[in-house]
């Protein structure tokens, strides 16, 4: 088959251009993270990793992620089920609303929560009566992270479930299946890869969220620092090796994310052929 642009010189030129740009733009930064971390030897890394602030940052990041991912997983499934399986007034508006966290700057997201739950906010001052403070504490960071990552699962599921249509579910209903059985035995097997993909993306974003949580965290070392905030603080303190050691943990997680994602895509492509 002859295709546009398949003459060897054009092909070679375009591939070379793509590879060089990607190398400069993406690969060099990725490699340099690890290079910076390992530059002063393994001993230095060990010192930084065993630092108690690093540990508390890791723990807090895990806590935020462990709460955020299941919450948004459940919400994403309910939303996707709602907008792809039923038609009702306001369906489109709902779909647009849910995209807001995608479009808005995470700093604005953090601000919104600060205004609501902060000392001056009406919900915040009400909660203060009960001695509950959500801002500058981990619950606030969880809330903002939930806000920022809420569209990911739904965005993966909606196009897929729309394309699949509801014939299989209707068939199951005519055969007598109800609620949970219907979802678990008919819907879930069809959407599980997209679901997993959505979870991976939510997870990556939850771990790496910076702008939003930086507004509501107060950055108290050892208390309200997540890993990205910890990286920032070390960097501002001119502790480059420390910053890049923590950064390389995050970069490692990013690589794992990419590998899982590639594997998922390969898996889906194989099944559909």
């Amino acid at each position: 088959m002859r295709r546009i642009g398949d003459s060897p010189p054009v092909r070679a030129l375009l591939i070379a251009l793509a590879l060089v740009l990607t190398a400069l733009f993406l690969v060099v930064p990725l490699v340099s993270i690890f290079y910076q971390a390992f530059a002063s030897g393994l001993g230095e890394i060990w010192v930084n990793l065993s630092d108690e602030y690093t540990w508390s940052a890791i723990t807090l990041t895990l806590l935020v992620t462990v709460i955020t991912v299941p919450v948004n997983l459940a919400f994403g499934v309910f939303l996707a089920w709602l907008v792809t399986r039923f038609s009702f007034p306001g369906r489109r508006i709902l779909q647009t609303l849910i995209d807001i966290p995608f479009a808005v700057s995470p700093v604005v997201a953090g601000l919104l929560y600060l205004l609501l739950y902060g000392r001056g906010g009406w919900l915040g001052s009400w909660l203060a009566n009960y001695d509950l403070q959500l801002m500058f504490a981990w619950p606030g960071m969880v809330l903002v992270t939930v806000f920022v990552t809420c569209p990911f699962v739904a965005r993966e599921l909606i196009p897929l479930m729309q394309a699949q249509g509801s014939a299989e579910e209707e068939a199951a209903v005519t055969l007598g299946a109800r609620g949970w059985t219907l979802f678990r035995r008919v819907t879930l097997p069809n959407i599980r890869w997209a679901l997993l993909y959505g979870v991976i993306l939510t997870n990556a974003r939850a771990v790496g969220e910076f702008g939003g949580v930086s507004v509501v965290s107060g950055s108290i070392r050892g208390e309200t620092n997540t890993l990205p905030l910890h990286v920032e603080q070390l960097y501002q303190d001119y502790n480059t090796v420390g910053a890049f050691t923590s950064a390389s943990l995050l970069a490692g997680l990013a690589i794992v994310t990419l590998v899982i994602k590639a594997w998922l895509e390969w898996h889906t492509a194989r099944r559909s052929h």
Partner: peptide, 26 residues
């Protein structure tokens, strides 16, 4: 009612036997 759908709407992830058994197991 037994309903046969236009494009059959078979459960792609189940074997033929599992498809047929679905209504009974549900």
């Amino acid at each position: 009612v037994g309903f046969v759908f236009q494009n059959y709407a078979l459960f792609k992830h189940m074997t033929v036997a599992e498809n047929v058994a679905f209504g009974l197991k549900a």
